[in-house]
Design a protein around this nucleic acid. Structure first.
Lengths: 217, 217
DNA sequence: CATTTACATACCGACGTTTGGTATTTATAT
DNA sequence: ATATAAATACCAAACGTCGGTATGTAAATG
């Protein structure tokens, strides 16, 4: 392939192909050669010019995946008219209802078969999204009295892990019914900690996503 | 190496070496050759006679790791003098206080750097330990009135995931302080769901294990 | 025009796995 | 009790693929 005047286009091509393959086959079962074969004529040298390792590609893919989500979290975090509790509710709801979720659940990735990718996302969530976006919201909630806890950081972790990992139908291959049940238990847990912020709309959206996922696999 | 009259001895040698290496270096960074080198003179062919793939060894190692734990769970499940709630408490306490835990935390595996091993353990826990041991306990608790939930299976999953994964200092590299905080939040969550079954002894033991882990890494 | 950048090509060592064979044990038949 | 057949345990070597690198080349830049 001829040299590209705008190398970022090439980078994006690589990332798109890698993303697609990581989703379809899982990270560990996707070879560099697979990525090359999905790229109209681009060579291995090109890939290693833009990325220093296969794991480097994985990291970039994960960042690309979480970037948009983090932007939403940042936006909610910086709103002025909500208290902490309401912001917590907002990030759940708006994350669930992002239109891209339909696309993601449509490719039906078997995340449960891609431990490196999955764990990368989890770490990214825990060490990026939680401290930078969720924790400030919890802290605000403590300050304004809408959230009560002595351990904001760990509370944020547990909630986000339960919501984003355990309740993600793609990770544990949950049916809509299982998603329903998990949501109910999650709601019970949140309620128990004084955070009654879930509603029927969110439940229905989760079931809907689980359905989309199951129809496409 | 001469042919062994009792091939199970050879299998165990392989498993022991693999376990040690998986713990020290992580699954993905342990090669078959590494295992051979830790086995006085055994050949690669021998390994592939007893195991059909590297992943097959991983699965066997995981089964070996969880077998002992599951035995404890089965024992508690089948006790006659406790209600469901008390049994739930018992499996937490007795799992924490198993003496082997000291050994496991001493080798200080960087589980967080071994996603395949870690996810294997999680799946094993979720799809073996939960349905066979924890779920019956929850069901008994519902029957005898000591536990209240409409979704026993999902409740069991969430509790076990939080306790065994999120609160495991080896997985997220937690300091004793972080372990302390996680335990407090976990306790708050359990209390919120009507399961006030944690005590100071358990907290101290968890901190102790986190300390052992940190001293050995 | 000189230098940097974006790629292509050829290659490397290490890896997981397969194969073909040998020695030892176990089961069967005499 | 012994001979023989079959199954098992193991070895040594080689295969194909992998992630990664060294080197070459042509396009873009300034």
């Amino acid at each position: 392939m001829a040299r590209n005047k705008y190398p970022e286009k090439t980078v994006n091509m690589i990332l798109d192909a890698a993303f697609k393959l990581f989703m379809e086959k899982g990270y560990e079962r996707t070879s560099i050669q697979d990525i090359i074969d999905n790229l109209g004529g681009l060579s291995k040298g090109a890939i290693y010019h833009h990325f220093k390792s296969k794991e480097d590609i994985l990291i970039a893919v994960i960042n690309q995946m979480t970037a948009e989500s983090n932007q939403l979290l940042a936006e909610v975090r910086d709103r002025q008219n909500l208290n902490g509790r309401e912001k917590l509710r907002a990030i759940f709801k708006e994350s669930l209802f992002r239109p891209v979720q339909d696309d993601i659940f449509s490719v039906a990735p078997n995340l449960g078969d891609s431990p490196q990718l999955l764990f990368g996302i989890i770490k990214d969530t825990l060490y990026e999204a939680v401290p930078h976006y969720v924790l400030p919201i919890i802290r605000q909630g403590i300050a304004d009295g809408s959230i009560v806890t002595d351990y904001p950081s760990e509370l944020a972790q547990l909630i986000i892990l339960a919501a984003n990992v355990w309740m993600n139908p793609m990770i544990f291959d949950d049916s809509p019914e299982e998603s329903h049940n998990k949501f109910m238990v999650f709601g019970q847990m949140m309620k128990g900690m004084g955070l009654d912020i879930l509603d029927k709309e969110m439940l229905e959206r989760l079931e809907n996503l689980a359905q989309i996922y199951h129809d496409n696999k």
